[in-house]
């Protein structure tokens, strides 16, 4: 079913094109689906905590000031700022599409090495992705509620990328290494960023109550886990689906 004209001129392209378009197609579907659900979960469970924290960040509420502050202030209702929420939905879908692109690319490599990829094994991929991208950096660089004191953003970003890269390699070694030495290297890669330490602020200036900060971090991790399991399952499912279609067409 491949185009004969392209076959005649460039032998490599018919093989390249289905492979790449299969990755792109399944990543778009998986990222959009998982991102949309993740965004809605974030709007319901994380956004109210964030808006609550912003009342302290802006100084509208003051923790340990002269007055006793209610833990249940009047918050802007859900979907009160549709433009802001719409941007959040779009960016969440983009971020998880980016993750799906990388995950499905790696899935195709694993499949080439004889590992089964489908929606069910995708759950494990999602868990590994959550550990590498969310839990590993968040273990020392906890999800930040707005207004929190933090070190220089560039330094934190460098540490974040390095930690995610190390943890990503570690998860791959745990999944596919299969030798004792690979597990030892994986453990070292998981531990090293935290033994070295994440960039920390010089002083604490956060005006937000710890109760809100703790809830925010817990919710961010919880929604992150759900989102990653979804992106893994969808990625595995759509990759399987696209592969079966390609095989059927061949």
């Amino acid at each position: 079913m491949t185009q004969p004209t392209m076959c005649a001129t460039r032998p490599a392209s018919p093989a390249t094109k289905p492979m790449l378009s299969r990755i792109l197609t399944s990543a778009l579907f998986a990222g959009a689906a998982a991102g949309l659900i993740a965004a809605l979960l974030q709007l319901v469970f994380v956004q109210p905590v964030l808006l609550h924290a912003e009342l302290y960040e802006s100084g509208e509420l003051v923790h340990f000031g002269g007055d006793v502050v209610s833990a249940h202030p009047e918050l802007p209702g859900m979907f009160s700022d549709l433009f802001r929420d719409a941007l959040s939905v779009i960016f969440t879908m983009l971020i998880y599409t980016g993750y799906a692109l990388m995950m499905i690319a790696l899935m195709s490599v694993a499949e080439g090495n004889g590992h089964k990829i489908d929606g069910r094994t995708g759950v494990l991929w999602g868990l590994a992705g959550f550990i590498a991208v969310h839990l590993a950096p968040g273990f020392s660089l906890a999800p930040e509620v707005p207004g929190v004191a933090a070190a220089d953003v560039a330094a934190r970003q460098i540490w974040w990328f390095a930690t995610v890269a190390a943890a990503g390699v570690a998860m791959w070694l745990i999944a596919f290494g299969g030798t004792l030495i690979s597990y030892v290297i994986a453990a070292a890669l998981l531990l090293a960023p935290h033994l070295i330490g994440a960039p920390e602020p010089d002083v604490f200036t956060g005006p937000v109550p710890t109760e809100i900060g703790a809830l925010f971090a817990a919710r961010a991790f919880g929604i992150g886990l759900a989102a990653w399991v979804l992106v893994g399952a969808f990625a595995g499912y759509f990759w399987r689906h696209e592969s079966q279609r390609a095989e059927a067409a061949a």
């Binding site: 093989a15 983009l94 980016g98 993750y99 799906a100 692109l101 990388m102 195709s108 490599v109």
Partner: peptide, 24 residues
């Protein structure tokens, strides 16, 4: 060519994904 086409789409997808994450 077959061994090369295996790695090129993979690398392209990884770089594209990384670009999207960095940008967003």
């Amino acid at each position: 060519s077959t061994s090369r086409v295996g790695i090129l789409p993979v690398m392209f997808a990884v770089v594209l994904g990384l670009g999207v994450i960095t940008l967003t």
